[in-house]
Amino acid sequence: MKNRVIKVVSGIMDTPIEKLDEESSPDTVEKWDSIRHMNLILALEEEFGVCFSGEEIVEMLNVQIIIETLREKVVQ
């Protein structure tokens, strides 16, 4: 799960995988702005076949929270 999320983040934020970890967020990743955040959410929805609520979208502001939110939705 973590690797898949980081791969998606890396693609959308145009940032190498090595530079990303669970703590990565708009504060640590330069290109993570509101437009790329929207693209990230849509890419995660596509990748994991889920749908986030508006409330979840505005809170998913680091990789750790993204993983936790996804865990609640994806039956493994």
């Binding site: 509101s34 437009i35 929207m38 849509l42 596509e46 986030f52 609520s53 508006g54 979208i57 505005v58």
Partner: peptide, 13 residues
């Protein structure tokens, strides 16, 4: 409508 409210982006992909 989620992104319409969050970021004024109305359309799906």
């Amino acid at each position: 409508s989620r992104y319409w409210h969050i970021g004024r982006a109305p359309f799906t992909r």
